[in-house]
Design a protein around this nucleic acid. Structure first.
Lengths: 142, 142
DNA sequence: AATTATAATTGGAATAGTTCTTGATATCGA
DNA sequence: TCGATATCAAGAACTATTCCAATTATAATT
């Protein structure tokens, strides 16, 4: 266990509490990593990265932190096929484009003013809590 | 888990070959199960069901068959969060609505004439090979 | 400030879905 | 029919994730 002595963050200010979640040192560093490294890292990616600052952190804790952050709506969990979950701090509703060639994952925003009901024949009475849109393909040279 | 698509006649004729894939007895039965039981079963669901007709089939074979069928574009593999993969023979482009209360998965069709590019700000030059749209929510009483 | 209660962290073991391996069996082509 | 190839079965192995028990940190209460 590592002390929670509030070390001053390098670049990103992280409050002691977000959305009612106590931001422990571990949660801060996990969150900071996601903010700095916006390429949709896996839990293990985050783990390796966070170890630079918290050498004693455990993978289980990274999972715990990520889950807590997701639960409190601070970050989002993204799944591609059956691969490891990935995490991103982009809270705006958006989808993901997975470039099959480079493996890079691009955020894809909705065009302004479109609603799902315009596009899909939703079951009558459906109340949507969560949307996940995943595209796979290639980026053709223009 | 309950079906949301109308039941299908018990006996389905399955050709010896589909899309260049040799339809062995095992593949036939796996495919038949998906056609008859259109509630997005998992590999294990299929396994249990197929055993009625092929008592000696193994789970590994069910996985092999499902993979072969997916690879040849005969069925689709559907993933929800990190749950077991589910499989469906509905090849038309469609999404899925996951009712959080009942667990039922509903196919969701696109409205005619809408294209993704109308709705999403795709990265320039993106060529989409595959789309996965997953909604989670509840069905309100009407 | 000391004490108790609660929450978070750790490390390792456990789990579950899926894939891999190996040897047996079936099918195809000559 | 014979040999080559594909498929199958059974179980072991793998991997991402979760669970558990013990420890430590933080918060609440006195």
């Amino acid at each position: 266990m590592v002390s929670n002595t509030p070390e001053i963050p390098a670049e990103i200010e992280i409050p002691e509490e977000i959305s009612g979640l106590r931001m422990t040192r571990q949660r801060q560093e996990v969150y900071r990593t996601l903010m700095q490294q916006r390429n949709h890292p896996t839990a293990n990616d985050v783990f390796m990265r966070v170890k630079d600052r918290l050498p004693n952190i455990s993978l289980a804790t990274v999972y715990n932190c990520l889950e807590a952050l997701v639960q409190h709506g601070i970050i989002r969990q993204v799944n591609f096929e059956r691969e490891s979950s990935r995490y991103c701090p982009n809270l705006s509703e958006h989808g993901h484009f997975h470039d099959a060639v480079t493996g890079v994952i691009h955020d894809v925003d909705f065009k302004p003013g479109v609603s799902l009901a315009d596009v899909l024949n939703l079951p009558p009475g459906a109340v949507i809590d969560d949307v996940e849109i995943t595209l796979r393909g290639k980026l053709a040279a223009l």
